[in-house]
Amino acid sequence: MEAVRKVASLWRLHVLVLAFTIAAELVGIVKIPIGIGAILLLPLLYSFVLGLLANPNITALGRKFIGSDEVKAATPLIVIAIMPFIAKFGTTIGPAIDKIISAGPALLAQEIGNLGTIILAFPIAVLVLRMGREAIGATFSIAREPNIAIIADRYTLKSKEGAGVLGVYVVGTLAGTFIFAVMASVLATAGILDVRALAMACGVGSGSMMAACTGALTNAVPSMEDEIVALAGASNLLTYATGLYVGLFIALPMVNWAYRILRGSEDEGASGTDGAAKPATNKQEG
């Protein structure tokens, strides 16, 4: 069997993942109290950090364990490894379908809430940090794979917009699980927003962000575990279905419009493949 041989040839990679999984699960969930709530450290965060530490692209130590070919081969495994998790979420949504339907209006409305990045991050990027058109790629979405495809299609990834979306993508990949775990645990323990609303918001990003977020929420409010998982999963499914279109037809035109309002006079006719005709923005980048 060709497929089995291919998987077996990566045995060192799988053994490392096995070791990290066991270590992470043995440590278990650690709760760190802070002023307004508590931050929860989850096994998935430890296994990610262990993976980074053993990555030959990041540490010299990693080169002792695996080669760069195995690192390349690990990338397509991530999306397959998250599939049982997605299946489990599905089996939690089915039995809770009544609750999902009664939360339907909120679930649909919060998909528009994805545009919250434009309200919070875009003005900070353009007005406070004085960024140029990188800000468009960086802030129009949560920068997961479908959003990269939108920017690649519209501006190419070599453009400033491309640099922006790739930068946020990489930071999200490196720190997204931590940021979601911290936000969810602090907001859940602070008790300002409805836990069901926090659960729905867990579904806005990647599978691992959702895992960190729901993990933190369910440990803060264990009595609502099934409902939290079901709502987050339903929201994530909606994001898969609508995210591409919200990004393409609403978010990207919105940031472009906002950019023209804020920068119009000094940045005329910018199209992403530009560069020569705008000394004002170029200076700010220096």
């Binding site: 909120a106 998909e111 919070l120 930071v171 936000m183 609303a197």
Partner: peptide, 25 residues
């Protein structure tokens, strides 16, 4: 700058969705 913006992107997306869901609920 991108790192800082990324934190606001993630926080903004999460908060935006949570606040709208909370209001509708």
């Amino acid at each position: 700058r991108i790192a800082l913006v990324a934190v606001f992107v993630l926080a903004g997306t999460y908060l935006g969705s949570a606040v709208i869901a909370h209001l509708v609920l």
